[in-house]
């Protein structure tokens, strides 16, 4: 599903190159559950952003579903991203002005789904994650764990094949974290490919495979 070849990412700081990612080669099959680990500044988030097409490498090749992503036009890339990828953030990034229901609905609007379809999908999601009763609340009225569940529901609303999670439990207490990780495991068993970035050994264990990053390089 994902194939990264010789990926480099650097910043120019005062004339010298400061490498974030150095020669990353990685392939991830459909149905996999990968945990990316590493200390702060090792390039975990950047790698995830490149996989999620939010960022571009300076060098290297990236194939997603057999497509050469870097050669695609931005419009096509957005379309590809929209139909296959969902994103979950450490600090949830819900839209404060929108209710739970509207937050989940937003990606569907951008996918140009009809009102009826949206209603069905959002209803399904609310049901699946047990937050029907909270649908008219605003993010500020929810606990961190509940907000993250809404974030995941929103990410899954567009039925992505790939779920990218950047420290999904980083802002949660351990009990909430466990719930989220159980949810991820469940999703993976349902066939969703998951790549998560985490600091926690325990959470990493939920994955089928662990990739360790150090100074921008993969350490097997």
């Amino acid at each position: 599903m994902i194939k990264l070849e010789n990926i480099f990412k650097w910043y120019n700081v005062g004339g010298t190159r400061s490498f974030i990612l150095k020669d990353i080669n990685l392939s991830i099959e459909q149905g996999d559950f990968v945990s990316i680990m590493g200390p702060s500044g090792s390039g975990k988030s950047t790698l995830l952003n490149i996989i999620g097409m939010l960022d571009e490498p300076n060098e290297g090749k990236y194939f997603f579903m057999e497509e050469d992503v870097l050669a695609l036009k931005p419009k096509k890339r957005t379309a590809l991203f929209q139909s296959y990828v969902g994103y979950v953030f450490q600090s949830y990034h819900l839209i404060d002005e929108l209710t739970v229901y509207e937050n989940i609905e937003t990606p569907l609007i951008y996918k140009n789904l009809s009102g009826k379809e949206r209603k069905a999908i959002v209803g399904d999601m609310l049901d699946r994650f047990g937050i029907v009763g909270k649908k008219d609340l605003f993010p500020a009225q929810l606990s961190g764990g509940q907000q993250q569940i809404v974030g995941i529901a929103r990410a899954l609303a567009a039925t992505p094949k790939l779920l990218l999670a950047d420290e999904p439990t980083g802002n949660l207490n351990s009990k909430q974290g466990e719930e989220i990780m159980d949810l991820f495991k469940q999703l993976n068993e349902d066939g969703v490919t998951i790549i998560q970035v985490t600091h926690s050994e325990k959470n990493a264990e939920y994955g089928k495979r662990i990739i360790n990053l150090l100074d921008g390089q993969i350490k097997e």
């Binding site: 990034h93 819900l94 839209i95 002005e97 990606p107």
Partner: peptide, 16 residues
């Protein structure tokens, strides 16, 4: 700016 970022991640276009 945060909202705009989220919307873009969720697939909003520049024009939108």
């Amino acid at each position: 700016i945060k909202e705009i970022g989220i919307r873009k991640v969720l697939g909003a276009s520049v024009v939108g």
